[in-house]
Design a protein around this nucleic acid. Structure first.
Length: 905
RNA sequence: GGGCGCUUAGCUCAGUUGGUUAGAGCGUCUCUCUUACACAGAGAAGGUCAGGGGUUCGAGUCCCUUAGCGCCCACCA
């Protein structure tokens, strides 16, 4: 056999692009059971995920890396289980974000504004931008190893998806669930558009509270009132007090004078007003405050708007017209001061609403907008989770979800933007509205041909809400839609539970009659290594592209997957990524060893090859072979269980521990020994190949690149060796290899593991002592094992013990009974075995006392603890096996103590 | 004002039906370039699992409570 020469270190840089190219070109990401192919079998249930579409203008950030890692893991796991798997990729047109980006871009490159270009030209430029740069983000997602089916890539403004949006709008409209009208909405003066409640963020800030006098008409009396927005005084239409407030009862029904404007407004009584808070009197500005708006409706008060779309004071603001809201605030206050109307100002801390996108203070304003009557949709969405048709992981987010839907308000879906799905409603000169699945040519009411389309576009989340089915062809009953819908998992961050997940559920049920997915898995947010949010101001943003350049994609993925628990935020630092880069390298080197070992196996008599395939319990397998096999089966069972429970991080950790601590540190070391022995070399080669193969399969969903690369080498090494039978059913690429199915534990496993553990403990004890006494590894010392019950175990494994603990095989003995040590030995006790080490020729002799005393102290404290435990009710109540184990332990410690005591004398 | 999460080794975190002597990575200390790997190997030090109370034969794990930190929702000028 030819010896393979692989480089000492894993080179992810050249490997990753090559492997991805191989996968994509090989069509491995497409579902093997495809409804568009003639041999399609509709009875096989597929596994489907719709990707959370990143913004088309987006640059890859660590949040993308997170969800791609998790979803790719889910997809690869199911694909390996043999399930037809579809992961639909795509991107979102992201109305505001993209429009702002392109505006900025045009300003920089061509020095033109959106307004100068005009609507049509601007939209055209945005499309140009999309065609030019829109693939950046998807290529970055490819770098993460995402195994999505790129032949089914979608974009929210695609023709197909736009048809879906149109259909959805028209259906809601026809059902009376969409209406247009003036309402108090959140207005972003910077973006000059309405935003939804969710797009407003409230932050505690230090502001000023202005106290002033509301003078009663024809009187010197006044009602003291406080506000943080004095400019809204211009829009006041009442002053409200609590009906039971004795201070102000006498004023109710009288008239007060709006400062400066001298408008007359009533004093009203309303229970909303708190007597304890502030002055106990409230100025009512229905045009710019949601609570005041509610009061105004109860009392039939007029609504006055004083701000325009740029938040400048409008014609209702008298002398302040045209002034910016903050400028007007200051000027008005100065004028009121001159008029003797002010009482005082004081610092105040309260929550201020800011635009999520632009950051400027949002103004509640009366504006004519489109709304979805959301309550009926919300009720159905609530029901779907309550009755278990949809499961949310982790469960605690169900409560959050319920709370939001139970208190939901109508959804403002119109945006005063240019980039997006334009509202499919047309107006005729007579004020009639016409909508339809096709663009109308005449008014549906009066037949007028003079139609103008509504200027607004739809909220981006309106189209995202249709994503799980619009990407599959809805509203057409396409083969894809019929087969792949509903999807399986919805995986995303908990921060967009309301924005997106809830809306997909509402719209999915409304339009398709089915829940859009049966499981919602929410991952946490990625924070920096000390738990801060990643932000440009902290300069702590981790750029996944740089991290991948530095440590490789697998290292980044493994870090994100293993470091996280469902729904909990996770802190990520470069140190962790580096450690996982080391793991990839470790894996690579194990691969080098295994490949080498297998390649050096020579063809022997047929019997030898067959023998190597016998079961792990068979005579032909060594204890170590059987042990690693048993451990592997345990691992497969654990990983399967953890995957079922969405405990991916825990599963990854266990695979990591198995590969590094069990397989590499122990089995590989022993395999080196076994490979030199004609009797064991074939079984060792087979065990190495089979255990390593299974490990690679388990690890593949976490670290697809390095596992795929190693697997290729392993596969060809085996095919060229006498072991080729075991690789007979391996496909070319690991990406579609079979996931190892867990089997029930077999009877022999436990005893093999117990025996091997005893050897491990003995070897560790010897190593420990050697290190303590500074005995050089090159110094081989004699050893004697005295064990009544396990003498043959030691006898059979002396070569391994000697090698791993650097004892001298010539001077190593095993006894079943009494043994009288000479003066120059030191002793250890492992379980019921005594180990005597001959240190007479080392420099370390004669310093045992302290160690023995420590050992005695430890044994005695265990004895004390166990005696107490066993004399308690534990002995009666606990499971018998557990009690038995504790009894044996106690016996062991007692023996140890006796032996150590004897030596101390 | 509601709701939720977190508090475990110097640091960052695992620990899901309550059950051996509570784990990992990084960091620290000692040895070793042993023919897969120094991106490594062997060994060591380091924890009254935030405080208090309870349930239990048995609690990091379940219940109550206190404190600190963080997040989400909410109409208090």
């Amino acid at each position: 056999m030819t010896k393979r020469e692989l480089p000492k270190a894993y080179d992810f840089k050249s490997t990753e692009p090559r492997i991805y190219e191989m996968w994509e070109a090989g069509g491995y990401f497409q579902p093997w059971n495809d409804p568009n192919h003639p041999d399609f079998d509709p009875s096989i249930e597929p596994f489907v995920i719709a990707i959370p579409p990143p913004n088309v203008t987006g640059e890859l950030h660590v949040g993308h890396a997170m969800f791609i890692s998790v979803e790719d893991l889910m997809i690869r796991y199911h694909r390996m289980k043999g399930i037809p798997t579809l992961w639909v990729p795509g991107s979102d047109h992201a109305g505001i974000a993209t429009q702002l980006m392109v505006e900025r871009y045009l300003l920089q490159t061509e020095e033109v504004t959106r307004e100068e270009l005009g609507r049509d030209e601007f939209v055209k430029r945005t499309w140009d931008w999309k065609h030019k740069y829109g693939s950046i983000i998807t290529n970055q997602i490819r770098r993460l190893g995402a195994s999505c089916d790129w032949s089914r890539e979608r974009f929210t403004l695609d023709e197909g998806l736009s048809r879906a949006v149109r259909e959805a709008f028209v259906r809601l409209y026809e059902k009376g669930l969409i209406y247009r009208g003036p309402r108090l909405i959140n207005w972003s003066p910077g973006l000059k558009t309405a935003v939804s409640d969710l797009e407003v963020e409230y932050e505690e800030e230090d502001v000023t509270l202005y106290h002033f006098k509301y003078m009663l008409k024809d009187s010197d009396e006044f009602i003291p009132v406080a506000t943080i927005r004095p400019e809204t005084i211009l829009g006041d239409t009442a002053v409200a007090v609590h009906p039971d407030d004795e201070r102000y009862q006498k004023y109710v029904g009288r008239t007060v004078i709006v400062p400066i404007l001298n408008r007359e407004i009533p004093v009203i009584a309303d229970e909303y007003v708190s007597m304890e808070f502030g002055t106990g009197a409230l100025k009512v500005t229905p045009g710019h405050d949601p609570n005041d708006y509610a009061i105004a409706q109860r009392h039939n008060l007029p609504v006055i708007s004083v701000l325009d779309e740029a938040a400048k004071i409008n014609e209702n603001g008298g002398p302040y017209q045209g002034q910016d809201r903050f400028e007007g605030r200051e000027n008005l206050w100065q004028d009121m001061k001159k008029a003797g109307l002010i009482i005082k100002t004081e610092p105040y801390r309260t929550t201020i609403p800011r635009s999520q996108r632009g950051g400027e203070i949002v103004e509640p304003m009366i504006s004519t907008q489109w709304f979805v009557r959301i309550e009926p949709l919300a009720r159905a969405a609530l029901e779907a989770v309550k009755d278990g048709r949809i499961r949310i992981v982790p469960e605690r987010f169900e409560k959050v979800y319920f709370n939001w839907l139970e208190n939901i308000k109508d959804w403002c879906i119109s945006r005063q933007l240019w980039w997006g799905h334009r509202i499919p409603v047309w107006y005729c000169p007579n004020g009639h509205m016409t909508t339809g699945r096709e663009d109308p040519t005449e008014c549906g009411t009066c037949g007028s041909k003079e139609l103008t389309q509504d200027e607004d576009v739809l909220d981006t989340w309106f189209s995202s809400g249709l994503w799980p089915f619009s990407t599959l062809g809805w509203p057409e009953e396409t083969p894809d839609y019929k087969y792949f819908y509903p999807t399986s998992y919805m995986e995303t961050g908990y921060d967009i539970l309301f924005f997106w997940v809830a809306r997909m559920i509402m719209m999915g049920i409304e339009f398709t009659g089915q829940v859009p997915f049966h499981t919602v898995y929410l991952h946490g947010l990625v924070r920096d290594e000390i738990g801060r949010k990643m932000s440009k101001t902290y300069a702590n943003v981790m750029d996944p592209l740089i991290v991948m350049d530095q440590f490789g994609t697998d290292a980044l993925r493994f870090t994100l997957l293993v470091g996280s628990t469902p729904g909990n935020d996770t802190n990520v630092g470069l140190k962790k990524v580096e450690a996982n880069r080391n793991f990839a390298n470790k894996l690579w080197n194990i691969g080098r060893f295994v490949v080498n070992a297998i390649s050096s196996l020579e063809d022997g008599p047929q019997a030898t090859a067959n023998r190597s395939l016998s079961t792990a319990n068979g005579q032909d397998w060594t204890l170590a072979d059987s042990w690693i096999w048993a451990r592997l089966q345990g691992l497969v069972r654990d990983v399967e269980r953890l995957f079922q429970n969405f405990q991916y991080g825990q599963a990854g950790q266990q695979i990591y521990d198995f590969i590094w601590s069990d397989f590499a540190d122990w089995y590989v070391e022993i395999a080196k020994q076994q490979l030199t022995d004609e009797e064991t070399r074939h079984s060792t080669g087979a065990a190495l190949a089979r255990v390593f193969d299974t490990s690679l399969r388990l690890l593949h969903p976490f670290t697809p690149f390095v596992t795929e690369e190693i697997w290729g080498h392993l596969r060809s090494a085996i095919l060229e060796s006498p072991l080729k039978e075991i690789a007979a059913d391996w496909p070319e690429a690991l990406v579609v290899a079979k996931w190892p199915e867990p089997r029930d534990p077999e009877g022999w496993e436990q005893s093999k593991v117990a025996d091997f553990t005893l050897l491990q403990d003995s070897i560790r004890a010897i190593r420990n002592l050697r290190a303590e006494k500074n005995i050089k590894p090159s110094e081989r010392i004699g050893a004697t094992f005295v064990s009544r019950s396990k003498a043959s175990l030691y006898q059979d494994h002396l070569p391994i013990i000697s090698t791993l603990s650097s004892t001298d095989p010539e001077q190593t003995f095993v006894y079943e009974s009494e043994y009288k040590p000479s003066a120059a030995v030191t002793s250890l006790v492992v379980g019921s075995t005594d180990i005597y080490l001959d240190i007479s020729n080392t420099e370390a002799s004669g310093k045992d006392r302290a160690r023995l005393e420590k050992e005695l102290r430890e044994a005695q404290s265990h004895i004390e603890r166990l005696e107490k435990l066993l004399s308690s009710d534990f002995a009666n109540r606990a499971p018998a096996a557990l009690v038995q184990r504790e009894r044996e332990k106690l016996e062991g410690y007692r023996e140890t103590a006796e032996k150590v005591k004897a030596q101390l004398k």
